[in-house]
Structure formats: C-alpha cells, structure tokens
Computed example of a mutant assay.
Amino acid sequence: MKLMPLGDRVIIKMMEAEEKTKGGLILTGSAKEKPEVAEVIEVGPGGLVDGKEVKMTVKKGQKVITSKYSGTEVKVDGEEYTIVRQGDILAVVE
C-alpha cells in the first residue's frame, strides 16, 4: 500500500531516539525523549488550501524538525508514519 498526501500535507517517518547519552549511559525505553527529527517520505501537491495558495517547500528525503506532538500517526504495512501539515514543520536539518 502506498500513501499519497493531499493538499499541504507531508508524510514523515520519525527517526529513532538516542539510546545513549553523550556520557555513554544507556537509556531505557521510558527515559528516551520522543524524537522530533523525521525524514520526509512523501509531499502533497500543495495548491489551493483553505482558500490560500500553498507552495510546498519541503522535498522527499529531507530531514525535518516538527512540533513535538503534531500530526496524525498511521501504521501501514507494519511501518509507523506521521501525517503533518507543512506548517507543522519547524525547520529543515542540513
């Protein structure tokens, strides 16, 4: 199954949280922070959204930072993805 976002939506896959601290301590599952960096999997076409013209500025394959608890989580073929609006993306990581 393939997901194709509509309008100004972007499908992202969250990156794995760090399992070790800088000092070398191994973190348990509950001590890990929710990751905020994600990889862009698919990008919607943009266009007219809510009466305004939206130009998509993110591209497939980019790493981005999103709002901590934004988007809708979905599971497809055993993989977890998050669908967010382009406006929920805070920055592109280079």
Rank of each mutant, 00 (worst) to 15 (best):
E19M: 00
V43G: 02
T66Q: 02
M56H: 06
D88F: 11
I26Y: 03
G51F: 13
L3I: 12
G78E: 14
L27G: 01
I65P: 00
G61W: 12
G44P: 01
V40G: 01
V76N: 13
S70G: 14
G23H: 05
G71M: 03
G24F: 01
I89P: 09
K55L: 12
S70Y: 11
G47K: 15
L90D: 07
K63D: 02
T66M: 06
D77I: 02
E19R: 00
S67Q: 12
V74Q: 10
M4P: 00
E16I: 08
E73A: 01
T21Y: 00
K68G: 14
G44V: 05
E73W: 09
K55D: 15
D77M: 07
L27M: 04
G47D: 11
Y81W: 09
M15N: 06
T72E: 15
E33K: 07
G23C: 08
Y69V: 02
K20N: 06
E80V: 13
G29V: 03
I12G: 05
G44T: 03
E39F: 08
M4D: 15
T57D: 10
K32H: 01
G47T: 11
V84R: 04
E33H: 08
E33R: 05
K68L: 10
I41C: 06
E94Q: 14
D8A: 05
A38Q: 01
M56K: 06
I41D: 08
V76R: 09
E16P: 04
E94R: 11
M14E: 01
V37S: 03
S30I: 06
E53V: 15
Y69P: 03
V40S: 02
K22Y: 04
S30T: 10
L27C: 01
V93D: 04
G24R: 02
E36V: 10
E79Y: 04
D8C: 04
L6G: 01
M56T: 13
K34T: 13
E33F: 08
E19F: 00
I41K: 06
R9T: 10
S67K: 11
E80F: 13
T21C: 10
S30H: 07
M56Y: 05
V93R: 09
P35W: 06
V58I: 08
G61T: 09
G87E: 14
E16M: 07
T57F: 07
L48G: 00
M15R: 08
V93T: 05
K22Q: 08
L90N: 11
P45A: 12
G29I: 02
D50F: 13
E79I: 06
E53R: 14
E33M: 08
G47I: 14
T72A: 06
K2V: 09
M1V: 12
E79R: 05
G71Q: 03
Q86A: 04
A38G: 01
M1S: 14
E19L: 00
E39R: 12
I65V: 08
G23S: 14
A31V: 03
A38S: 03
T21N: 10
E39Y: 09
V10W: 11
E94N: 13
Y81R: 05
P5C: 07
E94D: 15
E18N: 06
E36S: 09
G78H: 11
V58F: 14
P5D: 06
V58R: 09
K63V: 04
I83G: 07
T82D: 06
V43K: 03
K34W: 05
I26A: 00
